[in-house]
Structure formats: C-alpha cells, structure tokens
C-alpha cells in the first residue's frame, strides 16, 4: 500500500529518522504463525518530528493499562516489526523482563531515547517492542547486526542508563535466528 511520506511541519523539530508505531494483539487460542502475526499487527501512524510523535503518543493507551496479550512496536519507517524484514534478519534484540507496574514508564523512556538518538550506534537501531503479558511485561530493542558485539554492548549500557532499571534486572540478548529456531 502506498503511503504519504511523513515530513516535519513548519517550526517542528525533525527527528533523525522517521518512525512508525504499531499495535498487535494475539487472538487467544490461535497459533502465532507468521501469517496470523502479520494479520494481527496494525500500523497506527508514522511521524517525522518530535511534535508529530507526541500527537500520536498522547492519544495512545499506556502499555501498563493494556490487558491481554498485546504489544506496541516502534520501528524506523520502512522496517516492519518482524524477524523476516531485511533490516532485521541478521539482527537480534536485548530483552528486559519487567515486573508489573514498570512498563509504561520504561517504554516511554526507551522510545524517547531512540527518537532522541541516545544510543550512538549509527544506523543499527531498528526498533523496540513492549509486550504486555499476564505475569510480567517485556521490553525489547532490536538492532541490525547481532554479531556486532561493540554495538550490542553499547546498546546494553545505554539501556541501563536511560531506563534507570532496578539493579537486579536481568538483560538477555537473543539473535532473531535463534528466536525463529526455538519458536
């Protein structure tokens, strides 16, 4: 489908990259096959400036207020939030498990760090996901090159700084090829 490219409005603060927000919700009892995943994911909108981002985000429900098996995804415009996307297929993600009650604040801090280019890893960041689950919530940040250890270490250290996580928080890096193998 053809979409109009987002551009910053007059007097707005441009972002380094354009991003899209997506929402997905798993239908209970259905297998999470690639096809049903793609059918269940909806693009909410694309933005090119700080002001455009807030216009979307301010109207969105906070992750901590979602129920059921739901996810928000923030990805660079042109990258689908799927392992199979060309930008993601050689990549991986840092995974942070959060006890209930932390998701809204951590998600906001994470996306502000991405939009503001706080990670300093060139073009490596693809996007981020917050997954709302029954007992805990999961944050993940996806990058292009899973084998680039300097990049993944820098992403981890920046995450620790911007999320201000409890000291006992466990962070795990997973390549997407492993995720595909074991899913």
């Amino acid at each position: 489908a053809r979409r109009k490219m987002a551009v910053p409005g007059a007097g707005e603060h441009p972002l380094q990259f354009n991003y899209s927000l997506w929402y997905s919700r798993r239908t209970p009892g259905r297998p999470a096959s690639t096809q049903s995943y793609e059918q269940n994911i909806r693009q909410i909108g694309t933005f090119a400036s700080v002001e455009q981002f807030w216009r979307f985000y301010s109207h969105m429900i906070r992750p901590g207020d979602l129920t059921g098996h739901s996810d928000f995804h923030l990805f660079k415009d042109g990258i689908k939030p799927m392992w199979e996307d060309d930008a993601n297929k050689m990549g991986g993600k840092w995974i942070i498990r959060l006890r209930k009650g932390l998701a809204s604040r951590c998600w906001e801090n994470l996306i502000l760090a991405i939009l503001g280019e706080q990670f300093m890893v060139g073009e490596e960041i693809c996007g981020a996901v917050v997954s709302v689950r029954f007992q805990e919530d999961i944050l993940s940040i996806w990058n292009k090159t899973a084998s680039d250890q300097a990049t993944t270490a820098r992403i981890r250290d920046t995450l620790r700084r911007v999320l201000n996580l409890p000291p006992n928080t466990i962070m795990e890096y997973k390549t997407h090829t492993d995720s595909i193998k074991y899913s």
């Binding site: 007097g11 707005e12 603060h13 441009p14 972002l15 380094q16 700080v50 002001e51 807030w54 216009r55 301010s58 801090n109 502000l112 760090a113 939009l115 503001g116 280019e117 706080q118 911007v162």
Partner: peptide, 21 residues
C-alpha cells in the same frame, strides 16, 4: 552528516507545545 540528538528533558518539554518556540 550531523546527528539530530535530543535528550529526554527536551523531548518532554515539547509534549504540550505543538508549535516550536
């Protein structure tokens, strides 16, 4: 080229101001 970098405080300050100052 130059990177467009914003810190959290700057981004939060733009939250309620649709037009740049």
């Amino acid at each position: 080229g130059t990177r467009i970098i914003y810190d959290r405080k700057f981004l939060l300050e733009r939250r309620s101001s649709p037009v740049a100052k």
